[in-house]
Design a protein around this nucleic acid. Structure first.
Lengths: 135, 135
DNA sequence: TATAATAACAGTAATCATTACTGATTTGTC
DNA sequence: GACAAATCAGTAATGATTACTGTTATTATA
């Protein structure tokens, strides 16, 4: 099935492009709703998944959060998830820094390892400051 | 709130102990149901979470699967998730092999990194064999 | 061993993110 | 412009998990 143009999808992609954080479908929805007042949440989900499938964006599913996050940046990179405010933040750490772990993990495993999923958890700067201020 | 003994929780823990795979709540439920025919799924979830909170078991939430898995083995170790059959398999890779990545990731990040979540994806031996047999 | 306090229970309803369905509307092509 | 197909808005359904409620089991104490 070829991908036909749609104004809604263009708006969704353009919104994602404008953000450095990693919006949820709900956030995309409430933003795009400003230009398309009667867009539906299902349309947002359908288009986000379609764009992800086409490799134009990336869908991140962190286990600790129960919500998917979408990223305009499709280059492989790692993320930090704040346990406190649930923010998702890019890490500058080079992806190649641990690119060999797939081989490492394959050594004593009978099966085919295709990729790894890695992210970090802790407390972000904002929440650290807020915590220390409250004491 | 102190933890009071219950036969249901004992059965749940005992079932987990007997397994090397990483059962879901649903699987625990259907198994424990054999000895406790009218146990409810809510009871299973409540106890699994309680045991996890007490550090007696571990709850694993892999982003790519939408389902939680529970593990009697609380020692830190890595997992492989089969893209094909969704099996969760322990990896023999030493945890210490990449224990330094928390520091690595902290280098250029302004915030506190407490831990990392890492797992591997691909195709398990069973599914590899099945695939080659079907061609 | 009876009693009283309370954690845990079964059963059920609610939640939340996400997906599926449906008939109407856009979009691209001839 | 007309036709086929993708997309839409709106809504219902799904699936994993959690919350609620009145009853039962467990445990400390008398």
């Amino acid at each position: 099935m070829t991908m036909k143009y749609s104004r809604q999808r263009a708006a969704i992609l353009s919104f994602l492009q404008s953000r450095r954080d990693h919006p949820t479908a709900e956030l995309v929805y409430s933003s795009v709703k400003e230009s398309f007042p009667n867009i539906s949440l299902g349309t947002v989900y359908r288009n986000l998944n379609q764009l992800a499938e086409a490799g134009m964006i990336t869908k991140h599913s962190f286990g600790t959060l129960g919500i998917d996050h979408f990223d305009y940046n499709t280059a492989p990179h790692y993320h930090f998830v704040c346990n406190c405010c649930s923010a998702v933040i890019d890490l500058p750490m080079a992806y190649s820094a641990i690119s060999s772990i797939d081989e490492e993990a394959s050594k004593d495993f009978d099966g085919l390892i295709r990729e790894h999923r890695l992210y970090f958890c802790g407390t972000c700067r904002n929440c650290l400051d807020r915590e220390s201020g409250e004491d």
